[in-house]
Structure formats: structure tokens, C-alpha cells
Simulated assay, not measured.
Amino acid sequence: MNLEYENRRVLIVGGSYGIGLASAKLAAAEGARVAIVSRSAENIEKAAAQIEAETGHAPLTIVADVTEENAAQTIADAVLQAWGGLDVLVTAVGGSIRSGFADLTDEQWLGNYTFNVLSTVRTIRAFLPMLGEGSAPAIVMLGAAASKMPYAHQVVSNVHKAGLLGLNKTLAAELAADGIRVNLVAPGRTLTPLWTNRADKLATDEGRTRDEVLSDFSKDIPLGRFGEAVEIARMVIWLASPCASYVTGQAVNVDGGIARGLL
């Protein structure tokens, strides 16, 4: 299928690793002009080299920490200067704190809210003028399957990712008149650095191997395994493409079946 990405301008916030990087590679391979954002200059340099080596296209790189108040506007200014506009915005940032509810401080709640929700709000707001003038403009947010089936001891992420569901539905309706589609991809357990690092820590603490830890966490996934980042990225890139022109306001799980609710 031709996803009609040739010369489209695609920005991926959180594009230096995991699902964001996989999405950047797919978009570049489809012929898009790709920009990636990371707070780590070292990580973004490595990611850019991978994208160019695998696709033949060198991405625009922007070093910024989206948890900082003015970062979104800095990113928008850089994109406007380089390209004069934007067609696709993908926000692939977020994380969780593994803790019981009673042990969490206000500072942890607020810090994670900034990371998971406010950074996305600020980024979308900064790019609305450009997207409104873009070609078949689309926004895709990365959420989590936990927003539909909360995990134990991850209350902060459960609450904030559920908030992204509300943001997704609200913006899809509000921005439809401007021709901007808005969707969300909710990954399940995926082999990204977030999970492999966690598995390594548990393996060290419990005297086991990474594979043993991951195997245990795979037992309640109907497909019996973790996802690969590229499997999530395929949905991201399809939803952001003109091929999904009648799809907006949807939160699509790509989770191996782990979230079993009806809605």
C-alpha cells in the first residue's frame, strides 16, 4: 500500500528511541521529510545516523526537553524555519512511576503529569497554526493500553494516560473543522528500552535472566509475547497517513490482546 508520504513533513517528538524511532524510520522509508526531537544530544545523533543508514534520508534533529515550559515553541520555531510548515505531528513521550498510591508525593504526581500530559498539550498547541495550513494534517499521540486496563502499582501512568484518551477525543472533535485528524495509539508491553531496562533490574534483583523476566510478563498477553517497536510504529504511521482519511478520535490498542475491555 502506498501511504502517500512522499515529501510530507513529519515531526516525531521522542524520536530517538523505541516506538518514536521506529516510527521515524518508517516515515522516512515512505519518502517523508522527518524531524526528530530528543532531550539527549547523544541519543538523537545515534538515532539520526540509524535513520539515514536504513532509509537514505537524513532527518532534521532538534534537541529539546519537552518537560520545559518553552520547549514546544522552540521546536515549532525550528520546524518553521527549516520547512515552513508541518503535516504530521507524532508525540511519543511519556513514562511511569512504579509505586503504590500511598507512597507517591505531590512532586511525583506533578512531574509525571508534565511528562505524560502537559508536554503533549504544549506541543500540539504550538503546532496548531502550522498543522492548520498543512497537507492532510494529522496528529497521533502515543498512549498506553494501561489507559483502558490499569496496571497495579502504576497509578500515576494509569491516570495520566487515561487523560490522553480524553484529550484525543476532545481535540478530534474540536479540530475536525480545520481538517486536522487526531488519533491515539495505545501500546501494550513492547520491547523498548523502558521495558528492557526494567527487566534487567528485576533480573538482577531476583537472580534471574532478562528472558525469564520477560517470559513471566508475557503470560497474561494472549499472543504470548512482547511487541516489537516497529509493530506499534506501523499503526502510528498508517493513522497519520492520508490512507486513514476517515479515521479520527480513535484510540487504537496495539497490545497483543492484553487489554480485554469491550471499549
Rank of each mutant, 00 (worst) to 15 (best):
L128Y: 03
D106N: 14
A251C: 13
P222H: 11
L142G: 03
G261L: 14
G15I: 11
S245G: 14
D65Q: 07
V252Q: 09
P59C: 09
E69C: 00
E69M: 07
W109Q: 07
T67D: 10
V117E: 00
L165Y: 02
V236N: 10
E133D: 09
V90Q: 02
I232C: 12
S147H: 04
E174S: 07
A71C: 08
P150V: 06
I51Y: 09
M141Y: 04
F217R: 08
L89K: 14
P59M: 10
A259E: 15
T196D: 03
M149S: 13
Q154H: 14
L164H: 00
A186S: 13
L11A: 05
L167G: 07
V185Y: 08
E68T: 04
R181S: 04
E231L: 09
A138D: 01
A229P: 14
D220L: 06
V155S: 12
L128N: 06
E69G: 02
F217K: 05
A126Q: 11
P187I: 12
I180L: 07
G179Q: 06
R208T: 07
R122D: 08
V230N: 13
G134D: 09
T190A: 11
A58N: 04
T170R: 01
V93S: 03
R210D: 06
S23H: 08
A92I: 00
V230S: 13
G56P: 08
S135N: 11
L191G: 09
A146Q: 12
A138N: 06
E231G: 11
A53E: 14
T192W: 07
L89S: 10
D178V: 05
A78G: 05
S241N: 06
E42M: 04
D178A: 14
N158Y: 05
N158K: 08
A53K: 15
G20C: 04
V37E: 03
A172H: 04
I36L: 05
F115I: 08
L223C: 01
E231D: 13
T91L: 11
D220W: 01
P150M: 02
V252I: 14
M141I: 15
V117M: 02
T123W: 05
V121Q: 06
H153G: 08
H160Q: 14
V185A: 12
A22R: 07
L171H: 10
R225T: 15
A144C: 12
A82C: 06
